[in-house]
């Protein structure tokens, strides 16, 4: 296997961090400590981890309402993320964004985005910046979206733009089989969403999104193409979300237990553990120490979020604009 020891540790840490963040966040939300709606991505750890393993802070990603895994893979800190979900002043966005709008521009994270498909052209725009500045080799744009967004017109416009302008973009479609409760077999006209890439003149690759090694390999190739100035690639990562569409969604109303069991048997974290142990790439002791440190990190994240202050009410009026000259509206 052509992955360094450090990278393997990073991959395991990241996947386990996503898993435990989502489980912890869901538990806290059901306890009433979150201030709103939260969408979990546990089960889908492999796509963001395997892709972001190839990225640096100079690369940009666009994300979705189910964005915690993207944030964590891009290096955001889980205490500030938890505080944001709790609506606190110490949150990543000062409590103004919430679970669906976590961003960190210093880490190349363009923001979770709650209009399905709306972040796709943002990643194309980031890639356009790279092309205009002549820094494609060090700055690519990755757009994460789901099977639901594959039906949005703006995806198709963005794929065409990226192709005709030959931009360094990776279209990363996390097909978890469901747009809310609607199955993709009902809503998507193609067998594989990736087959649509051909019509836009770019490679379309179907990837096992429960296998982080498969994602890592496919993403490595796509990102290398982008960095070499060869244009965009479409990856369809077939994956599964373990929980409902949002925190209070009961999946038993629209998914069969056999289906859920089937995917849990393919669990990406367990698959990773089996693989590295079998190939003696990591020890059980090392895996456990990573898990233990993540458990501590989650305890800290919850404590940090719970103990953080509420934002000052006056911040309601901040940051609508960089500057605005109408005092009657009270903006600052």
């Amino acid at each position: 296997m052509d992955i360094s020891k450090e990278k393997l540790e990073w991959i395991y840490t990241t996947m386990y961090r996503i898993r435990r963040f989502e489980e912890t966040m869901l538990e806290q939300t059901l306890k009433g400590n979150s201030m709103g709606v939260a969408h979990t991505s546990d089960g889908q750890e492999a796509p963001p981890t395997g892709i972001c393993a190839h990225l640096t802070d100079k690369d940009w990603i666009g994300s979705t309402h189910r964005g915690h895994g993207h944030c964590i893979s891009k290096g955001l800190e889980t205490d500030k993320m938890m505080a944001e979900v709790f609506g606190k002043a110490t949150g990543q966005c000062g409590g103004k964004g919430g679970s669906m709008h976590i961003a960190d521009f210093s880490k190349g994270m363009l923001g979770a985005n709650a209009i399905v498909g709306a972040s796709i052209p943002l990643a194309v725009g980031a890639a356009l910046t790279a092309k205009l500045k002549g820094i494609e080799s060090e700055s690519v744009g990755v757009s994460f979206f789901g099977d639901g967004a594959s039906s949005q017109g703006v995806l198709h416009e963005s794929m065409n733009l990226a192709s005709v302008w030959k931009l360094p973009v990776i279209f990363a479609c996390e097909n978890n089989g469901y747009a809310e409760a609607t199955p993709s077999w009902y809503a998507v006209s193609a067998e594989d969403i990736a087959s649509r890439a051909e019509g836009y003149g770019m490679p379309g690759v179907v990837v096992d999104g429960m296998d982080v090694f498969a994602v890592y390999d496919a993403a490595g190739e796509a990102i290398a193409r982008a960095r070499a100035g060869e244009g965009p690639t479409f990856l369809e990562l077939k994956t599964y979300r373990y929980h409902g569409h949002f925190h209070a969604d009961d999946t038993s109303k629209y998914r069969k237990p056999e289906e859920e069991a089937y995917y849990k048997n393919l669990d990406s974290i367990k698959h990773f553990e089996r693989t590295v142990l079998k190939q003696k790439l990591m020890t059980e002791k090392k895996l456990k120490s990573i898990r233990d440190s993540i458990e501590q990190e989650m305890l800290h994240a919850v404590e940090f979020a719970l103990n953080s202050p509420m934002p000052d009410i006056s911040t309601l009026y901040d940051d609508v604009y960089v500057n605005y000259s109408n005092p009657i509206l009270g903006l600052r």
Binding site: F105, A123, G153
Partner: peptide, 28 residues
């Protein structure tokens, strides 16, 4: 043609791309 960038008829796509480029350091 890089700085005078002729766009396909995709207003949502290229306005979105303009926002993305503005967020990442350009002034489209």
């Amino acid at each position: 043609v890089e700085r005078i960038r002729d766009a396909p008829i995709s207003e949502a796509g290229f306005v979105g791309a303009a926002v993305g480029s503005a967020l990442t350091g350009m002034r489209p």
